[in-house]
Deep mutational scan, measured.
Amino acid sequence: GSLMYASIFGNVSAIIQRLYSGTARYHTQMLRVREFIRFHQIPNPLRQRLEEYFQHAWSYTNGIDMNAVLKGFPECLQADICLHLNRSLLQHCKPFRGATKGCLRALAMKFKTTHAPPGDTLVHAGDLLTALYFISRGSIEILRGDVVVAILGKNDIFGEPLNLYARPGKSNGDVRALTYCDLHKIHRDDLLEVLDMYPEFSDHFWSSLEITFNLRDTNMIPGSPGSTELEGGFSRQRKRKLSFRRRTDKDTEQPGEVSALGPGRAGAGPSSRGRPGGPWGESPSSGPSSPESSEDEGPGRSSSPLRLVPFSSPRPPGEPPGGEPLMEDCEKSSDTCNPLSGAFSGVSNIFSFWGDSRGRQYQELPRCPAPTPSLLNIPLSSPGRRPRGDVESRLDALQRQLNRLETRLSADMATVLQLLQRQMTLVPPAYSAVTTPGPGPTSTSPLLPVSPLPTLTLDSLSQVSQFMACEELPPGAPELPQEGPTRRLSLPGQLGALTSQPLHRHGSDPGS
């Protein structure tokens, strides 16, 4: 009898404990919600809404976190579960008819179910419309201010047509639940991603989709105040780019002037030289400038040598048109050559190039014969006009050509200096018209024969001689050997007369 009593008592207590286990969990969670309300000092109306929603959600799901349970299964099984949970929507909604099984599984994985109690606001006026909503159960109302403009029910759709707008718009009203509602919502990016994977279904979906109420604000059109608020930074940046392009296009129409201050000032006329910023005076940081632009901040801005204009002085008759350009485009679109090309026009420029290279940067340069637009006047290309890779490749080509020119210049200078040193070592320090008596009659020769300089066969020296023939050397430049009979510069000019005159010897006659 005691054994029977113990078994009955144990079973009854276990049954009672299981009955009250759900209630215990409910009270535990309710205590957490109330502690949250007390800690954050939530006001009474919002506090009442929180408690009511918790009670309804507990009775609806029995305190089970559906998302946590669903995430515990593998992905393939999750797709089947989501397809079952959203079967009513996918079967009865017209846009989803005719979709393949794979497309429906992908869509079912992207849908999220939302449960809303009465009085809950789903979308506020001015919120971004980031999702498309399908009503599965219940009814909602749409308000503009305090005026109800629409009441939607089961199988209705609200949001915005995503295929017509590249960016999400703003809501033009509040969406509030009238009863307990079940909503299926899919985010904008998720829907577009699935439709991109199934393009054959995309056309059918957009053609058959009928949005019951379009929440997009109709005033959000390009150029409206609301649109400016939504895309303020983007609009200002776009206007700045367009104004920069218009100014650079105007600059290219004036090829007669070359400016070292950047493309923003290349198009300024002579009357605007004294102004601080020219056409860019209202925004000094709008356009890029070269490193020399920092010198323009000092006094005497109108007389600054940074602004270059072609000189009108005539060229000498024998002067060549100019050196070879550094870039391939210089032959086609440049009416002034790079300062480095002028360094190779003569030997005198070679000796004085490194010492006063900055001073020569603004000297007169030889002109190319074609009066085409200036290379320095070409505006900086924006990322939309020329690819970045093209600019980098041009810079690399320019750097390689500069290296080759520097190597060639160093070799030419070394060769010229070597020839000058050899000339100085071969010439005796001094010569006299009267020579010392020699031991015999073989001493009648006034000077030792001097062998002429070897013929220069280097390509670089031939180019130097060509430049010497075309360029007029300055007075202080050293002379180079030329073709024809060679003669030492330090010898007297009348050596031929010395050989014809008898030598005057000093000596005593033994017979006297």
Rank of each mutant, 00 (worst) to 15 (best):
L375K: 14
F213G: 03
F205E: 01
S283L: 05
E324P: 04
P383Q: 14
T442M: 06
P321K: 09
G233K: 08
V258P: 12
P325N: 04
S224I: 09
P314Q: 10
S285P: 14
P325L: 12
L498I: 10
Y362W: 05
S293L: 04
M413A: 04
R315V: 06
Q466H: 03
D190Q: 03
S393G: 13
R386Q: 13
L152S: 02
N172M: 14
L448T: 08
L420P: 04
C337E: 15
G281A: 11
T130L: 06
L340K: 05
S465L: 06
C337R: 08
A433C: 12
D189N: 12
R265I: 11
E231A: 12
L129V: 09
V391L: 04
L152Y: 01
R246N: 10
S304G: 13
A131L: 03
P371K: 10
S271G: 12
I378L: 06
L129Y: 01
R388C: 04
N214S: 06
R176E: 01
P485G: 04
G169W: 02
V258T: 10
A414W: 05
G269N: 14
P369V: 09
L143R: 11
L209W: 04
T455Q: 12
L230M: 07
C181D: 01
M468R: 13
L503T: 07
S348M: 11
F201M: 09
L495G: 09
D127I: 01
G346I: 11
L183I: 09
V175H: 01
P441D: 08
Q501K: 12
R144D: 10
L128P: 07
S235F: 12
L409S: 06
R385S: 08
K250E: 10
I211D: 02
V416S: 04
P279C: 01
P305W: 15
G511L: 04
S139R: 11
S171Q: 01
G287K: 12
R408K: 06
G173S: 12
R247C: 12
S171N: 01
L308W: 13
P263Q: 11
S381A: 05
F158G: 03
E200R: 04
V434R: 12
S352M: 07
W206I: 05
S227P: 09
L453S: 09
C470T: 09
A266G: 12
A150D: 02
L209T: 06
R388A: 11
I151K: 01
V464T: 12
S243I: 11
T457Y: 06
F158A: 03
S443Y: 13
L191T: 03
G355E: 10
Q494N: 09
P485Y: 15
L376N: 09
L308V: 07
P339H: 11
T457I: 10
S445F: 10
G262I: 12
P299D: 08
E472A: 11
G173L: 08
P314D: 14
E479G: 04
A266E: 11
R394V: 11
V391T: 15
R301F: 10
G153K: 08
P441F: 09
T407S: 11
I221W: 13
S393E: 13
L183A: 04
F134V: 06
L380E: 10
S410K: 12
S508Y: 04
L402K: 03
L402E: 03
L178R: 09
P454C: 09
T435Y: 12
P446W: 04
I142C: 04
T212W: 01
P428H: 15
T179D: 04
G476Q: 13
R176M: 05
S333T: 04
Y362G: 10
P288F: 04
P369M: 07
R301N: 15
F205I: 03
S312V: 06
P263M: 09
K239R: 10
P291W: 13
S235W: 07
S302H: 12
P225F: 11
M220C: 12
V450E: 10
R245A: 12
A414D: 12
P284D: 12
E364Y: 04
S381D: 05
P339R: 13
S410R: 11
S235C: 06
D459N: 13
P314W: 15
S508A: 08
S224M: 12
Y165N: 10
S432Q: 15
V450M: 12
S271F: 14
C368M: 06
S243C: 10
V416L: 09
R238T: 09
E328D: 04
S286H: 10
P475V: 09
R422D: 04
I350A: 06
D146K: 07
P502M: 08
R358I: 12
K185N: 08
V149S: 03
S460G: 11
L215T: 02
V391C: 09
G438P: 15
A177S: 10
F234V: 09
G223A: 09
L491N: 13
H204T: 10
S382E: 09
P316D: 14
R236A: 11
Q418A: 12
S286D: 15
P383G: 04
M424D: 07
D182N: 04
R385Y: 15
S224D: 13
R236T: 14
L426C: 05
K241N: 07
S451W: 14
D329V: 11
L164W: 11
L132F: 04
P284V: 10
V175S: 01
H204P: 07
V434H: 15
S171E: 01
T212L: 02
A469G: 12
S271Y: 12
P225G: 09
A469V: 13
P492E: 06
H187S: 10
V347D: 07
S202P: 01
L498K: 09
G322Y: 01
L420Q: 01
F234K: 10
F344G: 11
E472Q: 08
D190W: 01
C181M: 01
T218L: 10
R315H: 15
A477E: 13
V149Y: 09
L491E: 10
P369T: 06
A268H: 10
S508C: 05
K154A: 11
T435V: 06
G281Q: 14
A268S: 10
P299E: 07
D412G: 03
C337H: 14
S348N: 04
E479D: 15
G476Y: 04
P299Q: 04
Y133W: 14
Q463G: 11
Q399Y: 01
G138K: 01
P387I: 10
A370L: 09
Y198E: 03
S341P: 07
K241Y: 10
L183N: 01
R358S: 09
L178F: 05
P316F: 11
A411C: 05
T425P: 10
P437D: 10
S202N: 11
L398N: 01
G511M: 13
S136R: 09
P255H: 09
T130W: 13
S202W: 04
H506A: 11
D329I: 11
T407Y: 06
Y431Q: 14
S171T: 01
Y362I: 13
Q482V: 08
E471M: 06
D412K: 15
T407V: 12
P279I: 14
P371V: 10
T372P: 14
L143S: 12
L405H: 04
L365Y: 08
F213M: 12
A150I: 03
T212R: 03
I140A: 03
P449N: 09
V427F: 01
P369I: 09
S227C: 10
P199A: 05
H204L: 07
Q466I: 03
V149A: 06
T252S: 13
K239T: 06
Q361E: 11
P369Y: 06
D189I: 07
Q482I: 13
D203V: 13
L461G: 11
G267P: 12
V148I: 12
P255M: 11
R188P: 03
L129C: 06
R386C: 13
L195Y: 02
P317V: 12
D329L: 14
V194H: 03
S302L: 06
T179E: 06
D296L: 07
A131E: 12
L376F: 10
R216M: 04
L209P: 01
L405W: 15
M220H: 11
L152D: 01
R388H: 13
C368D: 12
E392R: 11
P510Y: 10
N163M: 08
K241D: 13
R273L: 10
S283I: 08
T212D: 05
P371W: 07
L417D: 03
S290A: 05
V464A: 06
S272W: 15
S208E: 13
L458A: 11
D249N: 04
G233V: 11
S289A: 10
P449V: 09
L178N: 03
M468T: 12
L191Y: 02
L491Q: 09
N219D: 14
D196V: 07
S139H: 12
L340G: 07
F244Y: 14
A370G: 10
L129D: 03
E253I: 12
L417S: 03
A266R: 08
Q423P: 05
E392F: 01
S139W: 08
R216N: 13
L129W: 01
L419N: 06
L209M: 11
P310G: 05
L308N: 13
S445K: 06
L473M: 04
P373W: 05
S341N: 11
L380A: 04
